[in-house]
């Protein structure tokens, strides 16, 4: 039983991790806590659903045992682009303007407002009923027999989510450590003025931060839709775990966000048989408090 909870926690944690990378990058580079980030997750999920309606006519074939084929991948690409566009639009219309006023709390409050507006827009457009990319029932595959700590079963979609998340995390690591833009993002996060005199166009780095952060949020949304369901409140439900992952990993650390996401996901999942599903978020936050008591800057946060 415990291995099954662990496996379910890994799937949830990988979705949280993808969302948390974008949130922590936004925090490090733009220096504000974006409460609309959860809505990027929801927006990505719904945009993919919308696009799937158009692309589904192209092919009905799925990839082997998975519940989806090329149409969902094309929809995912469209959702990434559209969510990145939404983030850039919000930055131009709202965040950048409030940021220029120099009142940090105004930007945070602006993100609250944007989150409420986006969530209600989605309620209005799609209704409150849960929706799915596929109604087909997937059979969970036995990965470990019941004799080994209760065994582990996972659907092919869950395995795909884990695999793609692992690839994206590795790609992000290589991007931030090797690519010029990735290093420029780390440089701007550390010291925007020094980055400017080094020849880095900070405004361009900010734009790329929105594109990458919102793009990963869209992927998280589609993965959440694929493994659970699509609801207008899915981003809101994920928002606190996202922040918990970011704080746990150390604010501004993408690697910390991934680890934080996995810890929060696994803690929530393991808590279900112990305290019940309704209190699982509380267990994750208790863990967050305990880790912060030992390491106030989070697992990978810079001290002082």
């Amino acid at each position: 039983m415990i291995l099954q909870q662990l496996a379910d926690g890994l799937v949830l944690g990988s979705i949280i991790a993808l969302g948390a990378i974008g949130l922590t990058l936004t925090y490090a580079i733009l220096r504000f806590a974006n409460f609309a980030h959860g809505e990027f997750v929801t927006f990505g999920a719904y945009l993919a659903l919308l696009a799937l309606g158009q692309f589904q006519v192209l092919s009905t074939t799925t990839f082997g045992p998975l519940s989806f084929g090329w149409p969902l991948l094309a929809s995912l690409a469209a959702a990434i682009l559209a969510t990145a566009g939404l983030a850039l639009l919000l930055d131009r219309l709202l965040f950048a303007r409030l940021g220029r006023a120099g009142v940090a709390i105004a930007v945070v409050m602006g993100s609250f407002g944007a989150a409420l507006a986006l969530r209600n827009l989605l309620f209005f457009a799609f209704g409150g009923e849960p929706q799915y990319y596929s109604r087909a029932i997937q059979i969970a595959l036995p990965l470990l027999p019941r004799s080994v700590l209760g065994g582990v079963r996972a659907t092919p979609d869950q395995l795909a989510v884990l695999g793609v998340t692992a690839l994206l995390v590795i790609a992000m690591h290589l991007f931030l450590s090797r690519a010029t833009l990735g290093r420029a993002m780390r440089a701007v996060a550390h010291n925007p003025q020094l980055a400017t005199v080094t020849g880095i166009d900070v405004a361009a780095v900010v734009r790329w931060t929105w594109i990458i952060g919102a793009g990963l949020a869209a992927v998280a949304g589609v993965f959440a839709g694929l493994t659970v369901q699509i609801r207008p409140t899915m981003g809101l439900d994920l928002l606190l775990p996202l922040f918990a992952a970011v704080i746990l990993g150390g604010i501004g650390s993408p690697f910390g966000a991934v680890l934080g996401g996995l810890i929060v996901g696994i803690a929530e999942s393991l808590a279900v048989p112990l305290v019940g599903a309704e209190y699982r978020a509380a267990v994750a936050f208790l863990l967050l408090i305990l880790i912060l008591l030992v390491r106030p800057t989070g697992l990978f946060g810079e001290r002082g």
Binding site: R186, H190, L194
Partner: peptide, 20 residues
């Protein structure tokens, strides 16, 4: 003050300066 990127290595600091 704060005239180097403390979170990057020496080599990364130099490579970033010459990215263009």
């Amino acid at each position: 003050t704060e005239n180097v990127f403390a979170n990057l290595t020496i080599q990364e600091n130099l490579e970033l300066a010459g990215f263009f």
